[in-house]
Design a protein around this nucleic acid. Structure first.
Lengths: 218, 218, 218, 218
DNA sequence: TATGAATGAGCATTCATTCAT
DNA sequence: CATGAATGAATGCTCATTCAT
């Protein structure tokens, strides 16, 4: 449990200050333990860092389950699940931390990529495979299709939020982005373009109206 | 000229070690000057860092001019120009550096984004506008189209190479990636899909054959 | 105890080299501790300096008790007590140090004056008040009388020894100085001038003879 | 003339910051010359410091002439001349500077004392001799009498203003201090006590009234 | 096991001083 | 003669790491 507190504190400090910027003293204090205790649990700063990132990677493997439903429903759900996860402030911090250290610790960055985007990618591929099997999508190359989905939906917002640290994701904007991304994706890969695009448009409208009415209430 | 050497050395060190990791001594030594000299040119480490990034941003504004030619020719040229630029090791290092410091220097990261991807984006939009004016593309929302082009073509490889520091861009892979991206883009936005896709396929084949024959020669 | 050693070393170094001249490294070494240890005890150089001076001021408050006896006896004792204290090399060093920093740290100099000469002054006033109450002195203005006593007895030697660092107080000279000072003081303020001056003269003679015989023995 | 500007700037800086605190760069800039030029005139910092103090000492030799007139008139004039000189802010700064460096440069402090208080002392002695010759004072030991005069009149205020840097001499207070000092001095040494004390009292009253009326006018 | 106290090595920065021009 | 540009050597201070308890 003490190691738990230490790892949390370390993630916090590393994320905020970077590897060099974070000091073992600060981590120890923030974890509420003494420095020697900290060193009892983790041999040195590098080890601690590695462990923190390892943990980060392990935690990444979350969103893989895809619900049942129509193609559009599933894509929709899938997209938002990923978006919520990928744009979470702590995930963005972690990503920045990893990239900041990438030149000095190439393994860290690559294994993070494998665990993060990589595993997400696997999920994507599996999901698309399912849709193909169900004759909902027509896909030549699974990998490309998966990449397209990811790129169209999330690469823009993620890039933006990686760089604009204190701008929090804006639901409206995200809706537009995902909505448009899915539209393009369906145009290209759907076996039933017209209907799917209709369904999508309606879905977007529903969410938008809900948002608007919520805003009006205020 | 001395300040030139200092800035180069600083970029080098910062890129390799991060802001905290880079030491003024190391920068001075690597620039072949003494520490006091370094401080004569740059008031302090922060200022030096800021200048280095400023320069980085200034240098980013490069690829904006787009050649004449058929739609596919132009898209092709455009894509490769951007890819070459964005995947250059030094540009990737800079991007990592900026992201690594983003939490502590939000302005740095945001102004980098504005100068880098942001300005690239403007170029993209202008370019697409031209194509629309020439009835080559049919576009609803310019921004979305531009974002799509960028995402489809480059977000995948860039993300990959940001994380895999020592893997150098592989022409084959890139060709596939860009080729596929352009294909999707044309499918969605071209006013003359069939012909354009044909032209594209041919273009890809030509390049691939050239590459193969080059490989065989070796 | 370690902070004791540090403070001693610091007083030493500061006294010998001044605030800027003394280096934290030298203080640490002279105290037999490492620099980080030094910084564990004192937040920074200023704090250390302040503490050293604070201590100096606290130690100053010593000679206030005045013995019983005849007026001349008491004055005599009083004078020598103060002289011994004020002319002690370390007290002179401290005084020089304080004055040397006075322009940059006015509060230091003024609070030193309050604690040092100032508190001595209060003792003087109290003492003279006692003598007045006992009808031994006739005084118009207590403060002036106290100032006169101090000035007549010690201002000359103190000024001299402040400037001549390596001349150690010479008992003979001091005897003359104090003797003469007291004589003037008694002439002006004693209620029993003739007798008191006689007593004083005899006291001086006794001490002088003792000194002479001591010198002869050698 | 350039060396003039340098010396002035150096005195300024040294007085304000002490020897170590003053930087050659700052002195050069404040003198409006470049550092190499500064070094052309003065071999090194020590030399410059020595020269500055030498000059300070030379300038000290000022108040020696004593006007004619009655004993009280002459003492009065004499006292104020010295007081004005000794309490001048720049003289106080110089004194502090010298004392602050005394432990590291004993010769500096002693030669300053010789040139400053020492030479004043000689003036005092000569002056008192004159008064003795004119049967105005009855003095046993010239040196002691001179020391008494100085001590009674100026040691208090000077000590005060050495320590309280930003308190400027207050005419009222000084008047009291000098008035009382002279009173004591006359009581002890005058050959015509009653009359001289009367004259003095009147002199004080006149000055005090003048000051009061001046204050009322405001 | 947990810690207060300690340290060697290093960092950003500044200074007195000196070339090359 | 005067200077812009340069530097070796130090300074105040901090950090990752480790004893002694």
């Amino acid at each position: 449990m003490k190691s738990r507190r230490i790892l949390d504190a370390a993630l916090q400090e590393f994320s905020a200050l970077g590897f060099d910027g974070a000091s073992m003293s600060a981590i120890a204090k923030s974890a509420g333990v003494s420095k020697p205790t900290l060193y009892q649990y983790f041999d040195d700063k590098d080890r601690l860092f590695a462990t923190v990132l390892q943990e980060g990677c392990d935690h990444i493997m979350t969103p893989l389950s895809v619900p049942d439903g129509s193609l559009v429903d599933r894509l929709w759900e899938f997209s938002w699940t990923y978006a919520d996860f990928v744009l979470r402030p702590d995930m963005l911090s972690l990503a920045r931390l990893v990239l900041g250290e990438a030149s000095r610790r190439p393994e860290v960055a690559s294994s993070y990529h494998l665990a993060g985007p990589g595993s997400a990618f696997k999920g994507l591929i599996a999901f698309i495979q399912e849709c193909v099997d169900a004759d909902q999508l027509e896909v030549d190359n699974l990998e490309f299709a998966a990449q397209d989905l990811w790129s169209l939906i999330l690469s823009g917002p993620r890039d933006y939020h990686l760089h604009f640290v204190d701008k929090h994701p804006d639901a409206d904007h995200l809706l537009q982005s995902i909505g448009h991304g899915l539209e393009v994706f369906l145009k290209v890969y759907s076996t039933n373009r017209v209907k799917d695009l209709d369904t999508l448009a309606e879905k977007i409208k529903v969410v938008q109206d809900a948002a608007n009415s919520r805003r009006t209430e205020k």
